[in-house]
Computed example of a mutant assay.
Amino acid sequence: MFEQWLGKQLRSPRGILSKWIASYMETGNHDINEWSIQLLDVQPYDRILEIGTGGGAALSRIAEKLETGKACGIDSSKSMVKRSLRRTRYLREEGKAEIKHGYAENIPFEDRVFHKVFSVHTLYFWTDPDQALKEIYRVLQIDGTVFLAVHLKEQMKKSKKTDDFTLYSEEQIRHLLEKHHFREINVHMYKNYCCVTAAK
């Protein structure tokens, strides 16, 4: 019962325990976030979008590396957006960060504004992955790169909290990206993590 409740909260934290959920995710995602940031190879001028900012830990780390660039983030949970806004206040004041409430299927940014778009552990929750990838393609600049970091299907099936998740294999992610005209698809593995990257 607890595992199923936790799974629903991970999808979109809300309520009085949302702070605890945010801390739980931040601790649990620390390694994969750090690895994903390394893969992003952040440049001082980069404009980067994170889909699913959670409490803003990864986005803050990225924004601190920027000079003329900007780290933007969206999250479907209003509780997480508020938490991210508090965490990134000084970075936003410096013009290095921006946080909005939003969904992968309807990204609240204009066309071709990002060099890189990344997402850690949110692919499972997208209600319409085809529409989400269309949106990612739309907001990426030509030659921009998407980074999708996940636990793979066989690993995730072992936990009851993932009963309501949509799980993906490496090949399924690759197929989705090919379907939406992404190219130069590569698969990176680290510990139990997988990150599939592709260029527009």
Rank of each mutant, 00 (worst) to 15 (best):
F2R: 12
Q4T: 14
Q4L: 15
G7F: 11
Q9M: 08
L10K: 04
R11S: 13
R14W: 14
G15K: 02
G15H: 04
L17A: 03
L17T: 01
Y24H: 12
E34T: 12
S36R: 05
I37H: 03
L40G: 06
V42C: 09
Q43T: 08
Q43H: 10
I48L: 13
G52A: 01
G52Y: 00
S60L: 15
S60P: 02
I62E: 11
E64Y: 01
L66W: 05
K78A: 05
K82E: 07
S84R: 03
L85P: 01
R86P: 06
R89E: 15
L91Y: 13
E94D: 13
K100N: 08
K100R: 15
Y103N: 12
A104E: 02
I107S: 11
F109D: 11
H115S: 11
V120P: 09
Y124F: 08
T127V: 09
Q131P: 01
Y137V: 02
G144A: 05
G144P: 04
G144S: 06
V146G: 00
A149T: 13
M156D: 06
L167Q: 11
S169A: 09
E170K: 09
L176H: 08
H181W: 08
F182W: 04
F182A: 00
I185K: 14
V187C: 06
H188C: 06
N192C: 02
N192T: 09
C194W: 04
A199D: 03
A199Y: 05
K200V: 00
